[in-house]
Design a protein around this nucleic acid. Structure first.
Ligand SMILES: [Mn+2]
Ligand SMILES: [Mn+2]
Ligand SMILES: [Mn+2]
Ligand SMILES: [Mn+2]
Lengths: 222, 222
DNA sequence: ACAAAATTTTAGACTAATCTAAAAAAATAT
DNA sequence: ATATTTTTTTAGATTAGTCTAAAATTTTGT
């Protein structure tokens, strides 16, 4: 049995490890993301290590074992499927769904996950462009680049975001930046490194450097 | 804040009080339905009384206060809406949904409940024929009778079940007894009080007395 | 290389929800 | 009416998850 709390730790360890390209996750980082204190994290790490869900050497941070990763991927799969449901079927905006999915991701029913997946047409990506692990627990590999790493005048397609805060997503909405739109950098301001971008080959929009660093894009084709 | 556990107690108190026509629910009954021991129930009752969710005099059983009833009805509303979702949208059978709904009923999001209700077309009954409380927390009143209380040769419509166990529901499936079908009692066996019933004015089926006591029906019209 | 700073772990305590065993109260039966 | 049985509550423990404060370890800066 894996508790609600344990599932959350494993999910966060997975996501942070991924963000660090496979490097160990530290106690303090986990404390920040679980909204608890480092002491509480240490306790939980001891427990998860005993269950063989994580590789843990005191003071050295943690990574997931295969068993832990499978649990994490299962939770992430449910989270992202429910997000698709909330947007595609219930009409929520991509800025409104995360907290609800945080609850739904813990619903425990193989049959439900399967039926939901089919009902949604077996989606491969969630409303934020994040890939959905398959039912075997395999995470599709994606190769997105930050818009801020793309050269001037190169057409790219908006594929995802690396920040999921409602305020960031609402900011994108206001600028009509949506998944699948085409972006071409026209100019980067010398002064504040802000971007002038041609959107869908039509309008020119202006976004801050911070926005450009958090937009994930891909060259045409594929 | 109302915990998962407190919600379950309040829901069960509501349903048992309803079943007893408003009479107090006892500690032992709650222990049975919560799968805990009487001692644990006593602790929880003290706590729920402190929060003013129940009327509680030691040794005298409990009823819900208005505040407690509103919470219970909110949980029951979510339970039944999710059951409709599982059957109508995901294709589950009425015998497969209760345990999943037991989890989903605790998802906390006003917006989600509202959107789900609209997505389902604002259903008034769940797949077992149980009425769905409205968004204001009002439970529709229904007046069903047990099939076993209906006279011979009176046509009635099948409206619900008073037992929700998978095995009972599967037994009804096997006999083609579904919500909305027409039933007419042809004969009651002298020997074992079992029923011979005309189903949808076509086939004759035979069901035990126990089945007849757990089928809820209504006279034609309405 | 070593002192200072930062991070992590441990010790000890708390809360929610549960348990068993024992005590108290209520219901029942003669 | 009183003894017996049943039900309910209390007392005292336990587990999961959290906390603060203090100790241990690692990292950083000179
Ligand atoms: Mn999310
Ligand atoms: Mn997402
Ligand atoms: Mn149910
Ligand atoms: Mn139901």
């Amino acid at each position: 049995m894996t508790s609600f709390t344990e599932e959350n730790y494993l999910k966060i360890i997975y996501l942070l490890t991924e963000r660090h390209n496979g490097n160990e996750v530290s106690t303090n980082q986990l404390a920040e993301h679980t909204q608890t204190k480092a002491a509480s994290v240490s306790d939980m790490l001891r427990k998860l290590a005993e269950k063989n869900y994580i590789n843990y050497r005191k003071y050295q941070g943690v990574t997931l074992t295969d068993a832990g990763e499978q649990i994490a991927l299962g939770v992430i799969r449910k989270h992202r499927l429910w997000e698709v449901f909330l947007v595609e079927k219930l009409g929520f905006g991509w800025d409104e769904i995360h907290d609800i999915a945080e609850q739904l991701e813990h619903i425990d029913s193989k049959e439900l996950t399967k039926s939901l997946d089919d009902f949604l047409g077996n989606p491969k990506f969630d409303p934020h462009g994040d890939p959905i692990p398959d039912s075997k627990g395999k995470m599709p590999s994606v190769s997105y680049q930050k818009l801020s790493d793309i050269p001037l005048n190169q057409s790219v397609v908006m594929m995802g975001v690396s920040v999921h805060s409602p305020s960031f997503l609402q900011h994108l909405d206001k600028n009509q930046i949506t998944l699948g739109c085409t972006l071409k950098i026209r100019e980067i301001s010398e002064f504040d490194k802000s971007y002038s971008i041609l959107l869908d080959e039509k309008n020119t929009i202006f976004v801050s450097n911070e926005v450009a660093r958090n937009l994930l894009v891909q060259m045409q084709e594929s």
